[in-house]
Amino acid sequence: MKRYFFVSLSILVLTLSAACHKDHEASSAEITFIEPSLNDTIANAAELHVEGTISADGEMHSYTLKISNAANDSVYFTKSSSQHAESYAFHEHWVNNLTDTTLVKVTVEVELNHEGAKTSKTVNVVCLP
């Protein structure tokens, strides 16, 4: 009985190890913004359209899309994904509701692997009141 238990446990551990795909983890990724473009101007009540792709040389662990104030890092919008994939396509909208002219940064940050390696890309836009 004990032998079966250890055999089963070994199979479980091996399966879980394989599931991690550690040997396919990404070491680098390319983040491409299709929108917005650098220094785009967003009118009040207009939508900031964020769209792009992330491609890596292996399986990535997660990514975060954040829209924040470039001066003080106040966060207006953030979404995170913990899906493991070799590529992502993002497409989100945020409505400009700011009351002052503000330099806003759109940041995509990717967690590449178990070691916590990260890469990111930022595009700044101007939001009008």
Binding site: I34, E51, T53, A89, H91
Partner: peptide, 8 residues
């Protein structure tokens, strides 16, 4: 559904 040939 795909976006830029990546499943979205």
């Amino acid at each position: 559904t795909y976006l830029h040939e990546i499943r979205h």
